[in-house]
Design a protein around this nucleic acid. Structure first.
Lengths: 133, 133
DNA sequence: TAAGTGTATTAAGTGATATAATACACTTAA
DNA sequence: TTAAGTGTATTATATCACTTAATACACTTA
C-alpha cells in the first residue's frame, strides 16, 4: 500500500513480508534491471529509513545483504554505492535466477506437472495477455 | 533431515520452514500425485503427531488447511479421508500451479528475465541432466 | 463401556522481526 | 578545528508467528 520514490529508487512496502526483505528485493531488482545505474549513490541508511518511515536498523539489514550480494559497495563516511562492475550484476542475476528456477521446478514436480504442461500454460496465458493489454 | 514413512505417506521434516507448512505441502503433493489413493484414510492427527514427534495441534493446523483445499474430508469420530472426487484434486492442482507460476513469473520479471531466457536455461539444464542422471 | 477419532481452549516458551535510543569511527567541507 | 553526514554497533523492549503442553469435549465404532 505504501509507495515511495527515493532518488531513482522506487519502493512499495506492505506488511505481507518482512520489511528488510521487501527493501532488499526491490533494490536488487532496480540494480539488476539497471533502473539505478552502476556506480550511482544509493540513498543513505538514515535517509531511506526516514522516507519509508521505518527504523534505520531495518534498512541496515537490507543494505548489508546487498553488499554480500556484490551489488553495492559501502564507503564509511561517504555512503553506499551501486557496484561499478557489470560482471557482478550479471553473476548475481544468474545465480538468483537459477535459485528461483530450481525452487519453481520443485514446486511443479510436487504437483506432478511436467515442463511441457508448464509451457502450455504460459503460452496460453501470454496469448490471453497479448489480446487484452 | 528427519525422514518418516506413515502409512502410504512419506514425510521429510526439517527446520527450514514451519512444521505445519511442510506437512501440508507434502500431503498435498502425495494426494496430487496419487501416491495416496482417492478415498484412502489419512493417518490420524494423534498418530501422525506421534510418528513425527511433534504436537497434535501442529498436525491439526495442516489437516484443517488440507480440508479447506478440498483435498480431504474429515468425519468426526472416524478420521480424515482423501476426497473421493478427482475433480477436486484436479482443480486444486490447477489453482496452486497457477499461483506458483504467477509468483515465479514475477520473480523473473524482477530480474529482467524474459520467458525466452527462462526456456533457454531450462532446456540447457534438461540436456545436462539427461546426460548425467 | 472403552478406545479411537476430530476439535477446542488456555498457558507458556522461543525466535524472527522491528523499534528506540545512544554511541562510535570515518569522510567531507566550512 | 568543527560540524554535518556517512556506515556501524550495542542494548533494551515489544510484537507476532510458531510450537509445545495439558486438558477437556463430542462423536463413532466395536
Amino acid at each position: 500500500m505504501e509507495e515511495q520514490q527515493v532518488g531513482s529508487l522506487h519502493f512499495q512496502i506492505d506488511f505481507s513480508q518482512p520489511l528488510y526483505e521487501q527493501i532488499l528485493d526491490q533494490a536488487r531488482s532496480a540494480i539488476a534491471k539497471g533502473e539505478i545505474a552502476l556506480g550511482d549513490k544509493m540513498p543513505s541508511v538514515r535517509e531511506l529509513a526516514q522516507e519509508l518511515r521505518i527504523n534505520p536498523n531495518t534498512v541496515m539489514r537490507a543494505y548489508q545483504e546487498l553488499e554480500r550480494d556484490g551489488l553495492t559497495e559501502k564507503r564509511r563516511g561517504q555512503g553506499t554505492y551501486v557496484t561499478t562492475s557489470p560482471e557482478h550484476v550479471a553473476s548475481f542475476r544468474t545465480a538468483l535466477a537459477a535459485k528461483y528456477i530450481d525452487s519453481f521446478m520443485e514446486q511443479m514436480e510436487s504437483l506432478g506437472l511436467s515442463w511441457d504442461d508448464i509451457e502450455k500454460y504460459i503460452h496460453q496465458k501470454q496469448a490471453a495477455q497479448g489480446g487484452n493489454g
